[in-house]
Amino acid sequence: MTAQKLLSTIGFYALVVVIVVFSVFPFYYAIITSFATGTELFKVSYWPATFNLANYESVLGGRNFPRSILNSVFIATLTVTFALFLAVTASYALARVRFRGRGLLLMMILAVSMFPQIAVLAGLFELIRFLGIFNTPWAMILSYTIFTLPFTVWVLTTFMRDLPVEIEEAAIVDGATPWIIITKVFLPLLWPALVTTGLLAFIGAWNEFLFALTFTSSETTRTTPVAIALLSGASQQEIPWGPIMAASVIVTIPLVILVLIFQRKIVAGLTAGGVKG
């Protein structure tokens, strides 16, 4: 019996090790590659062999990649601010006020968040051309609203639904208007939720590719995913793996750190809504 128990414990930990190695190895390998240059790049090595910052210098020393990082930061920050601003008031109404058609409205918002983005591409392209914002950051800020806004509304609504009703009742008895209730009563309680949803929306905007690829046409307006995808070497045949891996590590490290710091909150935010059976 004990032998069997020992065996199952070993089996369990073996499974744990396999899960961890599979999850972490590709990123670890990208980091190793990013420090290798020249012929070292073409020898498969499982351990960090060299520590050469040449790839980072070539990526960050260029003119376009730093610009892409700035573009991405600007676009993601503004997208998130915009989405949170619209979502806080809307989700208060959706979570706390009973009105006819609320369920339908929530379903519609959810439907929008699950839209295939390609289905709006042609129409958005026209709209962006019409507004004269093609190949500017505003094209992305506008189009990212389609996935950040429904998502933030949805998650904030589930968070707000769980706030105790007594707080609100007390405020109403004191004669507070709905606007006062949101700004003075709910907002202070909502900070954790706002941080979580804001972070998730930021990650979404930071990683987006289809719109950023379609709505930009010059190297200086690209966001980081597009810049990495289109990073090319001196010749067509030569793919600059070293710089690509360095650029990948640069845009991923901040996300990984943020995710690890906020992991509990992120898990809560990801699973909010939907999973309540």
Binding site: W206, N207, P225, V256
Partner: peptide, 10 residues
Amino acid sequence: LIPWAIPTIV
């Protein structure tokens, strides 16, 4: 969480 946090393009 690491694979999830890494951008798809990356």
